[in-house]
């Protein structure tokens, strides 16, 4: 099933690809988060399906990042449930969710600045080791070559092969963001939550990152990708489904065409932007 037909085609929308499983992997029911008087996420019901790229868009302060923080367990919801593969995970810790296959990147990059770029990704890959590995105190970590190799491969794919031994904190802003995304890849996710992976990048660097995401989507048919993105061109080009958040509420959901034509969306979001 891999790379069916002309790979160029799948760049538009994956929706035509009938072989995708389309099973919902993660869904929220009435998910709500209040910060004092402010309701940042308000009664949101969304489902994310395997094999497709879902984009979440919405104006600044719409609650997108907060929504990701709820999904990844960094914030406790005020109400509602999060269901992952049929299991309620609302009360699990971030590490338990990660171990189940939920990975995320951060809008404000979260890397390990004083470690080398390679070690940043290696330690993420190592998290998938058996507990006899991850709790091993007495063996040099380099002995587990599979993690180092995986880290090298992933870094090559995002074009960071020159930077293996650079202190991660010394990377350029764009490269730090790539690294942040690579750290998330390295944990073998089943669902990958990307919070503005192209923010702060120069125009010419964006296609590179996008192609990495598209390749992932193509190669790993079971992987669900959720993308928060401000750049509408990117959103329209890359995503299969779009979900619009505004003031914490889900405003609309559908294909790029449906979203473009939705009046409320135009009013609330597109209108404001254009």
């Amino acid at each position: 099933m891999k790379n069916q037909g002309n790979p160029q085609n799948s760049i538009s929308t994956g929706l035509g690809d009938q072989n995708r499983t389309m099973e919902t992997i993660l869904e929220t029911q009435g998910l709500t988060k209040k910060f004092g008087g402010l309701t940042a996420v308000d009664q949101v019901d969304i489902g994310f399906r395997r094999g497709i790229i879902t984009a979440i868009i919405g104006p600044n302060g719409a609650g997108k990042t907060t929504f990701f923080n709820l999904l990844s367990g960094l914030l406790e919801p005020t109400g509602g449930e999060i269901i992952y593969k049929g299991e309620v995970i609302t009360n699990l810790s971030p590490e338990e969710r990660s171990q189940k296959g939920i990975a995320r990147s951060f809008q404000l990059t979260q890397i390990f600045p004083a470690l080398t770029t390679l070690e940043n990704v290696r330690v993420a890959a190592q998290s998938r080791g058996k507990s006899s590995t991850t709790y091993n105190l007495l063996t040099n970590a380099e002995k587990y070559g599979q993690f180092t190799n995986k880290a090298r491969d992933l870094l090559k794919r995002v074009g960071l092969e020159e930077e293996f031994y650079t202190r991660a904190g010394n990377l350029t802003r764009a490269n730090r963001r790539k690294l942040d995304v690579t750290i998330a890849f390295a944990t073998d996710p089943e669902i990958l939550l990307l919070d503005e992976p192209t923010a702060g990048m120069a125009m010419e660097e964006i296609p590179e990152v996008l192609s990495v995401i598209e390749n992932l989507n193509r190669e790993q048919e079971e992987l669900a990708i959720v993308l928060i993105e401000h750049n509408m061109d990117i959103v329209m080009e890359i995503s299969d489904t779009i979900c619009v958040l505004a003031d914490g509420k889900k405003l609309a959901e559908g294909t790029s065409k449906e979203i473009r034509e939705d009046e409320r969306v135009q009013q609330a979001y597109l209108g404001a932007l254009r």
Binding site: L115, E119, S127, T134, L137, A141, Y144
Partner: peptide
Amino acid sequence: RIVSSPVGRVWQSIRENETRTGVIGY
């Protein structure tokens, strides 16, 4: 030996960024 072991590496990532260390599954 301990600081270069898998555990020692995780210690360093906690030192650098504890939130992220949790989010990648430790």
